[in-house]
Amino acid sequence: MSEGVVKKFMFVNRKSPYGTVYALESLEVVLISAAFDQDVSLVFMDDGVYQLKKGQQTKGIENKNFSPTYRALDGYDIEKLYVEQESLDARGLTEDDLLVDVTVLSKADMGKLMDDMDVVLSF
């Protein structure tokens, strides 16, 4: 029934990893969405930018480190990763601190991108 339809899907991540399960379970939907051949964008803003921080070591909290999965996304043809500049600035982070290549957008451009979507899922 949904065959042939391509919608613009956006996954908005605004929460830090590990403190809550949202980041991990969001990533699980993103991976599934790849099988549907949709136009998928991922947004990281506010504390969501911490999901992409290099050097995550989770042994001490006995949690699975799922951050390598972000690097595997291009293998699923998910290549549109956007980070809001203001969110990085407010956390003392730069693009160099992130473990994947992203497109950094200003707040205004981020807003325009969101306006252009068909389906926005937020976690």
């Binding site: 029934m1 949904s2 339809v5 939907v29 599934i32 969405s33 549907f36 926005v120």
Partner: peptide
């Protein structure tokens, strides 16, 4: 499965979270 969520997003006119 989670595919049901993506499918619902494709088939519905609006998805509300």
């Amino acid at each position: 499965g989670l595919g049901q969520l993506v499918e619902a997003g494709i088939e519905a006119d609006r998805l509300v979270t």
